[in-house]
Every structure is written in C-alpha cells, then in structure tokens.
C-alpha cells in the first residue's frame, strides 16, 4: 500500500527531469545550479563545516565555476562521492563537473572518456616516520612495516618504490585514513605512507606533531584536478578557463582586496581582458563579460584559496612547493588570456 510514496515521487521526478541535451552549459543555466562532485571528506580539500556548508580547496573550484556561469557562488549542489562512484556519477550526467582530488592519469583521461581541465594541486606520495627512529631518507626504510590504505594507487606505488630500490617491507593494509592514523600512533607500523598533503594534515592533529617527520622523498606523481565529460568542449573550456583565471589572477596580482578597483580598468591589458573591461573573452565562452571577476570575487585568486584552506597559515601548513606559480619556481601556470 505504502509503496505509492515511492512510485508517486518517482513519477514526479521523471516529469521534472529536464530533457537531455548535449550542452551542459544550457542544462546548468536551466537548473539554476551547478551539480559538483566533491569528496565525502578530505581535510582541507572538501568537508562540511558545523553549519553544513561545504568548504575546502576543491569546493572553491566548484564555487568559482558556479559564480562564473550563474553569477552566484552558492548555486552549487554538492554531491559527495566516494572513489568508487565518482566516475559513474560524472559519466551518467548526475554531476556537471568533478572536483574531488582526482589524479590525472592516462587511462582516466583516455579510456574513461573524461577531460581533465587542468591541475589545481600537485600531490605525491610521501612517508612519515617517528623522529625517534632516526631515519632521514626513505632509502633507509629496508625491512620496515608500513601502514597503507588498501585499494589505492598508494599500495602500488609503494611496491614499485621498494622493488626498484631493492628493499623489503611488510605492509599493514587498512581501509581508512583514520584507522591508519590510529595504528601508526599505536606503533603497529614504523612508517605511514599516503599523499604528502594527507600526511601533513594527519601530523597536524597528533598530540606531539614534532615527534614525527615527513621524509623528503616523493615517490609518485599525483596531479589532482577538476574534470568533465568528453564531448562537450564548450563546457570543458568554461571549467578550464575558470581555473586558469584563478591562477592567472595570482600571477597578475589580482586579489580579492583589489578586485573591485582593478575591474574599473587598469593599465595592464591582460588584467583588463581577464576582468572583462577589454575584449570579449566572456562572450567567446558563452558567458557574461564579468565571468572571471565573479569567479575571483568568491574567495580570491589561486594563491588566496591555497592559503585559506591548506597553506602555511592553516593547521595543515602545506608549503607551496610544486604548487607555487611558475615565476616562483613551481608548476602552477596559466596560458595567456588573449
């Protein structure tokens, strides 16, 4: 009897569904909100705060895109996704873009038919050991017991690293980061390995963070970035250039503090083109002229977003490192706005 509630709602949902269309931009505008896939919870990158609002480094990419497309950074429907269902959610159209610390790899780009629009964080796998062990390099870890998360690329990278250096190790595989932290602290393993950013955030929560060191070796490349489906190049361009706008703004010195002033026009033609006072870049994307200004108004440029969520002023305390602008010796680089 009571199954009506389900069928009724199902029918209504079916009615309300918008007709299929290749243009994601039109869909997003029609819905009035951007469906953005995020992590179910990774420190600094995506997490709900006490009031239920999503915050984080990846979340700000979603908000910037929503602001660029819809003019409202809050018009985002966050879809928390696990590493298992993130790709199907994107492929099936449940979400419009995925910003869920996803590593850009060949097979994901080519075989799964996604378009990675850029890299917003260059991560890599590292090792953490107790200082008391006196280890200073990962090359000295022969025979160590290692806490790892199962089912991730971490496990494979670890095997590769130890094999190529002719060392042996004993893995202690566990399912979640939280369990690994507990195990490592309880002394169940000598070494804890995962992405450097996650290690830094874990260490920051330890009772005595100074008793632990993160070894300098980075044993894998994990370029994390937002991605969209193959086949809608206009939408891919919008997400790509929104990310580029955040990056270029830092390089050009556009910050949330001087954004209003600069959007009245400056002496720099590139800033003017970026902020829409010169040229017609917004129009070429199918957006309003002030799209990049809206995106920057959300939480500032790339550097500001980095500092707010994961930078050295936060408890996580990540240095810019590879994620510094190219002019400062990092890899963060935006093609010109021309």
């Amino acid at each position: 009897m009571k199954k009506t509630i389900i069928f009724g709602a199902m029918a209504v949902a079916g009615m309300a569904a918008v007709s299929a269309s290749a243009a994601t931009l039109d869909d997003v505008k029609a819905k009035g909100e951007l469906a953005c896939g995020v992590n179910t919870g990774v420190v600094g990158f995506a997490a709900p705060d006490a009031s239920g609002k999503w915050v984080g480094f990846d979340v700000d990419v979603c908000r910037a895109v929503a602001a660029a497309v819809l003019g409202d950074s809050n018009a985002v429907k966050y879809v928390p996704l696990t590493s298992k269902n993130r790709f199907t959610a994107l492929a099936s159209g449940e979400i419009d873009m995925l910003a869920r610390n996803t590593t850009w790899t060949f097979s994901r780009d080519v075989d799964l038919k996604f378009t990675f629009v850029g890299v917003n964080y260059y991560d890599g796998q590292a090792f953490m050991v107790p200082k008391a062990l006196g280890v200073t390099s990962a090359k000295e870890l022969d025979g160590a017991t290692v806490c790892i998360q199962t089912g991730t690329t971490t496990e494979l990278n670890l095997a590769d690293f130890f094999r190529s250096n002719g060392m042996s190790y004993e893995p202690v595989p566990l399912d979640t980061n939280a369990e690994n932290q507990k195990n490592y602290l309880a002394g169940a393993c000598d070494v804890y390995t995962t992405d450097a950013s996650a290690l830094a955030s874990s260490r920051a929560t330890f009772e005595n963070p100074d008793d632990h060191v993160i070894l300098p070796e980075i044993v894998s490349k994990e370029p994390l970035g937002p991605l969209v489906r193959h086949g809608d190049n206009q939408w891919g361009d919008i997400v790509r250039w929104t990310l580029n706008a955040l990056i270029a703004a830092e390089e050009l010195g556009v910050t949330s503090a001087n954004l209003a002033e600069m959007s009245n026009g400056t002496n720099s033609p590139e800033i003017n083109r970026l902020l829409g006072t010169e040229g017609s870049l917004g129009e070429m994307l199918g957006l309003s002229a002030d799209w990049a200004k809206n995106a920057l108004a959300v939480s500032g440029n790339y550097g500001e977003i980095f500092e707010t969520h994961i930078g050295e002023s936060t408890a996580i305390g990540l240095a810019r490192g590879l994620n510094a602008q190219w002019i400062n010796g990092g890899l963060i680089y935006s093609p010109p706005f021309r």
Binding site: N39, T40, G41, V42, V43, G44, F45, A46, A47, P48, D49, V79, P80, L81, T82, K84, N85, T176, A178, Q181, S201, S202, A204, T205, F206, T314, A315, I316
Partner: peptide, 23 residues
Amino acid sequence: SIIGLLDPLGLTNAIRANQEWNG
C-alpha cells in the same frame, strides 16, 4: 555511507575531514 550518502557513519568521516576534528 559506502556509496557516498552521509548517514551518521558517513558523517563521522566528513566531520573528521575538518582540520579541527581530524583524529
């Protein structure tokens, strides 16, 4: 929680993902 819905168990992970409560 395994398919990404934030039930109480899923939320424990999401809450730990705030730096204040990590751990």
